[in-house]
């Protein structure tokens, strides 16, 4: 139990080692540990965020799909309706066209008929006059009997 210079020596050595540790050992190691801690925390939160992002993306994809389906259905519906419309339109158009053609044909037929009738009348009146001339033996004065003839022709 003799105290001697060893006591002083150890005290100085202790002070020096504490100083060296404080200066050269403690700061870099604790700094690295802190850095790693931060890194791990960041990594974990990034993983969390990624998971959340994935979930959001999935939800968005599902919503988009649903919307697209609805839109497609709407488009098909619209197309169907439009097709029906076009068909209907074509039908009415064809009908009116047909009616118009029929009308024209009818009017043409009528015109032909009138013309034929006129010609026939003319021919009949000529025949009548011819016949009458032969029967009477004289010439029916065209001018004198013109009124009569015209009346006759109108009656035919």
């Amino acid at each position: 139990m003799d105290f001697n210079l060893t006591f002083i020596g150890q005290m100085i050595a202790f002070a020096i080692f504490v100083f060296l540790t404080m200066r050269y050992v403690w700061p870099p190691i604790t700094q690295a540990m802190e850095e790693r801690q931060k890194k791990i925390a960041d990594g974990l939160s990034a993983a969390d965020r990624a998971e959340r992002d994935l979930q959001l993306a999935q939800e968005k994809a599902a919503a988009d799909l649903k919307e697209a389906k609805a839109k497609a259905a709407q488009i098909i519906d619209q197309a169907n309706r439009r097709a029906n419309l076009i068909v209907d339109e074509a039908k009415t158009q064809a009908r009116t066209e047909g009616e118009r053609l029929i009308e024209r044909a009818q009017s043409e037929i009528e015109q032909e008929m009138n013309r034929a009738r006129e010609e026939l009348r003319k021919a009949v009146s000529a025949l009548v006059i011819d016949g009458a001339e032969k029967v009477l033996g004289s010439e029916v004065k065209q001018d004198a009997h013109n009124d009569l003839l015209a009346k006759l022709a109108a009656e035919l």
Partner: peptide
């Protein structure tokens, strides 16, 4: 010898062990 003496063995080992501690930890640091 009284106070004016040094225990070479214990102080020597103490310094050597302190140095071992410091060298190992400093290398890692």
């Amino acid at each position: 010898m009284g106070f004016m003496s040094v225990n070479l063995d214990t102080l020597g080992w103490s310094l050597a062990l302190g140095l071992i501690f410091f060298v190992i930890f400093r290398m890692v640091a």
